[in-house]
Amino acid sequence: MKGLLIKDLKIVASQKRFFFIAILFSVIFAWTGEDVTFASTYLVLIISMLTLTTISHDDFNGGMLFILTLPTTRKIYTKEKYIFAFLNLMLGALCSILVCVIIGTIKGSSIPWAAIISSTAGITLAMGFMLAVTIPLEFKFGVEKGRIAMITAVAIIFLVGAGGYKLLTDVFHVDLKSTVAELISKLPSNGQLVEIIIGSLMFVLLLAMLFVSYLISNKIMKKKEF
């Protein structure tokens, strides 16, 4: 496991330039933009994609055959990918908050804490979901086809979501927006507590998604022939 993590870190390190450009862009976004949260979403997006980068590098030119002949197993490999994905998500979130806060401080404007944290948490959860869907697909169909499968899957989920929303509002005449607003307004008025509850719920949701995805990937990898 340790060896595999080092390998992935080395792959990331070999992408130094890409990394710097990403940070630079996010700084520029944060500096020039009115909306500091855009920078944070951008950074989480880029950093969490690194997990997929390592998968495609592993897969390149028979790399997987090499990795599996090392003292490791399919199971360890799969587990390592998810740990790496989780670490990346956390790192992305941390970086994005840091960039926003630092830039905010330098600019001397007040820091919109709530906006930064909620947008970071939201994008982290979204990226976590994207990875949870993509990783097993890439294991199953390979990197090339996996990407296509991922895009298709996301499109289907979006269509189902949008269709479901339309179905609810148009056919069943449920006003979803006001229902949610009502629900939120019913929550205890102690703001901080609510934030903590929502925050930890999101965190648990993220872990649960990755775990379910790991179980699926493990099954796929167990049967895969190289």
Binding site: G3, L65, F66
Partner: peptide
């Protein structure tokens, strides 16, 4: 293995800590 190749985006030096951990 003929078809297998070392993680090709790395250098021979990068492999040292990986092999050491393995």
């Amino acid at each position: 293995l003929t078809e297998a190749n070392v993680c090709e985006y790395l250098t021979a030096k990068d492999l040292i800590p990986i092999m050491k951990a393995m």
